[in-house]
Computed example of a mutant assay.
Amino acid sequence: MDHDDMLALFDNRIRRNTPPDPGCRVERDGAVVRQVGSEHSWNGVVWSGLDEAGADAAIAAQVRHFAGLGLEFEWKAYSHDRPADLGARLLAAGFTPEPDEALMLARIADLPAEAALPEGVRLLPVTDPAGVDLLMDAHTQAFGAENPRLRERLLDHLRHGVGTVSMVVAMAGDRPVSGARMELIPGTGFAGLWGGGTAPDWRGRGIYRALIAHRARLAAELGYEYLQVDASDQSRPILQRLGFAWVSTTTPYVRQP
C-alpha cells in the first residue's frame, strides 16, 4: 500500500467514520464530523469535507454548537483538507493554532519487532489511579508542565475504556522517566500511539523506540494492522527511521467557549 492509499484509509476509517471515545458521542453535521463529551473529554471536529462556498458557514455553526454547550473544542485540521485556506478561515473565526505535528502512519508488519530498554529500566503497565499518577509524573518531566485535564481523561479511560486503551510507564528504579499510551480503535485496524515523552536526562537511550515496539507488539497481538502517530519535530525522525511514513501535517486549532 502506498502513502496515498494509506492516507485515504486513515481518512475514511479514523476521521469520517470514527468511533467515539469512551463516554463520548460522534455527531454528523452536514460535511462535518465532530466528537462531543464532557469538559474533560476531547471535544472537536475530526473531519470536514468543505468547499470554499460553505466553509465559513460550517465553521460558524460549529462555534455556535460548542459555545452553546460551554465547551472548549479543537478543529483538527490536516494539510490535505479543503479548502486550501481552511487554516486561515479558522484563524479569522477566533481559533488559536497549536504547534504543527506530522501525521505518521505505518503497517505494524513493517516495523521492528524488538527494541531494547536501557539497563535498569522496566516497563510498568498502568492499570489503576496510582499508575496514572506515575504516568503524569513522567509527562510533567518530559514536557515541563502539568496537565490536569489529561489526567482526568486517562482516569476516564480506566473507568470506561476497558479494552480500548493501553498505558505504560518506563521506570528507572522508583522514578517514572517516560510514559505512553495506545488507543485502540475497534473495527478500523488502526491503533493510535500517544505520549512517549521522556525526561530530559534519559533521552537518547532508546526508551522512546522501546515504547513504540512494545505497543506495536501488543497491537499486533490484538489483530490491529496499522499504527498512527501525531509526531513532534523531535520524534518524527525517529519514527521515520523505524519505518513510519509522513503522509500529512496536522494542526490543532482551539476555540474557547
Rank of each mutant, 00 (worst) to 15 (best):
V247L: 13
Q234W: 13
G206D: 06
V247A: 12
A219I: 04
A210C: 08
D230N: 15
A213M: 03
A210V: 06
M182T: 03
L242E: 08
G204A: 09
G197M: 05
A191Y: 06
A210W: 07
R241M: 05
F244P: 04
A191Q: 03
E221V: 00
E183V: 11
I207W: 11
L227E: 06
E183C: 03
G243Q: 06
R203L: 05
S248K: 12
F244D: 08
Q234V: 13
G195S: 07
G206E: 08
R236K: 14
I212S: 06
G192A: 12
Y224D: 02
A213L: 03
S235L: 09
Y224Q: 08
R236A: 15
R215F: 14
A213F: 02
Y208I: 04
I212L: 12
G204S: 09
T249G: 02
R217M: 01
I185D: 09
G204K: 09
A219S: 04
D230K: 15
F244S: 08
G197H: 05
E183N: 09
I238Q: 07
I207F: 12
A245H: 13
A219V: 05
Q228Y: 09
P200V: 07
L239Y: 14
Q228R: 15
L227A: 14
I212Q: 15
A220R: 14
R203Y: 00
W246F: 10
I185Y: 08
E221N: 06
Q228G: 00
S235H: 11
G223W: 12
W202S: 03
S232T: 15
G187C: 01
W246K: 10
G204Q: 04
F244E: 08
R236P: 11
A199C: 05
H214R: 08
A199G: 08
I238C: 07
S235M: 04
Q240Y: 07
E221H: 02
E221C: 01
R217Y: 00
Y226K: 11
G206T: 08
G192L: 05
T249D: 13
P237Q: 14
L193N: 04
L227G: 11
S235T: 14
L222K: 14
F244N: 05
W194M: 06
R236S: 12
T198E: 11
R209N: 01
Y224N: 03
L227W: 01
I238D: 03
Q228D: 01
D230T: 13
A199E: 09
L184M: 10
S248R: 11
E225R: 15
Y224V: 03
T249L: 12
F190H: 02
Q234S: 10
R209W: 03
D230A: 15
D233N: 15
R236D: 06
